[in-house]
């Protein structure tokens, strides 16, 4: 298992990232309307998918923690949320870079953009709150509550383009995207998925060690305390 996490998954992540982005940049055709600008979807769209997956897993882990009272679930929830925030940042930055040449603006308060920004700050808030509570049990409990409440925004992000008229386009599907563009997109999506697994695994191990350090009785004191 260690071999899989330390070697296979990083290799798959970086390998597919290279192949997917190489195909996206040099093999896939240009787009009729946007020319080469559209090629940012090979980063933007996978980042969006993995970001939503990361927050969703964080939500389920938080629910699991509260119901079963397993500290490991909370550690995972934090790891997944933290990686989710990274992908969320990539999402907002690449979207902005694409928006300027396509829409003509870096940012506008369109429902999709607004809900995606709320999602970013909600989970930043979750991570910030955890830094303020020193007692692990309390931190896990209230952290979980915030992660569960922040999850409300995820369906809104997904459906924002369907429910409300927005500047951001609807979700694309293989029917609306040429096959030659779909393949690099799929490869990039798997690259981001493996990148996510890799990062969460490392972050989870850090979390476990931090928790052990916090909960450990200071050893010299315990030994020296003779009656």
């Amino acid at each position: 298992m260690t071999f899989v996490f330390n070697k296979v998954i990083p290799f798959l992540a970086l390998g597919l990232l290279f192949v997917g982005h190489y195909m996206g940049l040099f093999v896939a055709p240009t787009e009729r309307m946007m020319g080469d600008v559209y090629r940012i979807i090979y980063t933007h769209v996978p980042a969006a998918w993995i970001c939503l997956i990361a927050y969703t897993l964080s939500f389920f882990a938080s629910v699991y923690y509260l119901i079963r009272n397993k500290m490991g679930a909370d550690t995972f929830a934090e790891a997944s949320a933290e990686v989710g925030v990274v992908f969320n940042a990539i999402l907002l930055i690449t979207g902005s870079i694409w928006g300027k040449p396509t829409w003509g603006v870096w940012w506008t308060w369109d429902p999709r953009l607004t809900t995606a920004a709320i999602m970013f700050f909600a989970f930043i808030g979750y991570l910030a709150l955890r830094r303020f509570i020193t007692e692990p049990e309390r931190r896990a409990t209230w952290g979980s509550v915030v992660a569960i409440l922040a999850f409300i925004d995820l369906p809104l992000v997904w459906y924002s383009v369907k429910w409300w008229n927005s500047l951001h386009q609807l979700q694309s599907s293989p029917q609306t995207v040429d096959a030659a563009m779909v393949t690099p997109l799929r490869i990039s999506a798997f690259a981001f998925l493996f990148l996510y697994i890799w990062m969460v695994h490392v972050r989870y191990k850090i979390g476990v060690k931090r928790l052990a350090l916090e909960q450990a009785t200071p050893a010299p004191l315990a030994q020296g305390a003779t009656p």
């Binding site: 055709p29 559209y38 829409w103 500047l167 609807l170 694309s172 995207v177």
Partner: peptide, 10 residues
């Protein structure tokens, strides 16, 4: 502002 559709075509 220009609104792009969800179509991506060669």
């Amino acid at each position: 502002m220009v609104k792009h559709s969800n179509e991506y075509r060669a």
